[in-house]
């Protein structure tokens, strides 16, 4: 089942003589259960793309479809509902509320509007167990390590059972051990819970935990690499593609899937 369809997506900032195309006719799709990485050099349009999918920004042309829903047609309140019900966020800077306990941070998206789920406690216990947070629920974010904080963010992202989790440089603030641990948890989420994840990253090691990497450059689709074989082999191919994309002239390695 197709979860995300990015359809001729174009975003142009500025006007008349000072126009910059952050996204330029970008097309790709993500299927349910995939763990997709988005990579590209700085200024490639990764954050703009994420903002479009998160309905934090609106496209100039084209559209994004998530779970069969065209995002450009959503009103503000529908967009809020979409973010609440269909999306989960994992931010580089965690964006946890410092005055709420871990438990309250995780269940927060469920408490915004009625009807509040009756199985909130069970959901909390489940995500806490999956992400190894069961013993930390009564703590506050500043009493956790950075890796634990990012796991809380991940728990908050998955507690609403969204169609898609967006992760924006989730390991950017973590040391290598915490980053690896988090990525293992994300992989576990993806495999055991069948959660679809889209992750923006600069880092090839982080990307190697995905199933597929979409490379974009200058706002357009450049190439993609799909995982076959071991993670080390996948990692090597990502490095190769990064070299290609940064080196410039080489032709696109593969064509986008329909």
């Amino acid at each position: 089942m197709r979860v995300v369809k990015v359809d001729h997506l174009t975003k142009i900032y500025g006007h008349r003589f000072n126009r910059v195309a952050a996204l330029n006719d970008l097309n790709f799709q993500v299927d349910a259960g995939e763990f997709v990485g988005i990579m590209g050099p700085s200024g490639a349009g990764k954050s703009t793309l994420l903002n479009m999918i998160a309905t934090l920004d609106t496209p100039t042309l084209g559209d994004v479809w998530v779970a069969g829903q065209a995002l450009s047609t959503l009103t503000d309140s529908e967009a809020a509902q979409y973010r609440r019900e269909q999306l989960g966020f994992i931010f580089q800077t965690f964006n946890l509320l410092p005055d709420l306990t871990v438990a309250d941070n995780i269940t927060l998206p469920l408490t915004f509007v009625p009807p509040r789920p009756t199985d909130m406690a069970a959901r909390l216990a489940h995500v806490a167990e999956v992400l190894g947070l069961s013993s930390l629920l009564t703590r506050y974010p500043d009493q956790l390590s950075l890796g634990q904080r990012q796991r809380v963010t991940a728990a908050r992202a998955m507690i609403t059972r969204p169609s898609l989790i967006l992760a924006d440089e989730p390991t950017g603030s973590l040391d290598s051990m915490a980053a690896t641990e988090l990525l293992q948890y994300l992989t576990k989420l993806n495999l055991a819970e069948d959660v679809t994840i889209m992750m923006v990253t600069h880092d090839a090691f982080t990307a190697s935990f995905c199933n597929r990497i979409i490379f974009i450059r200058d706002g357009a689709y450049f190439a993609e690499v799909t995982r076959h074989g071991t993670r080390q082999e996948f990692f090597d191919r990502i490095i190769d593609m990064e070299a290609t994309i940064n080196g410039g002239g080489r032709r696109r390695a593969t064509t986008p899937r329909d």
Binding site: Q81, L87, F89, L108, P109, F112, R156
Partner: peptide, 10 residues
């Protein structure tokens, strides 16, 4: 901003 991103109605 975080709350808005998480889908809390404006």
């Amino acid at each position: 901003r975080t709350l808005a991103q998480l889908g809390m109605p404006e």
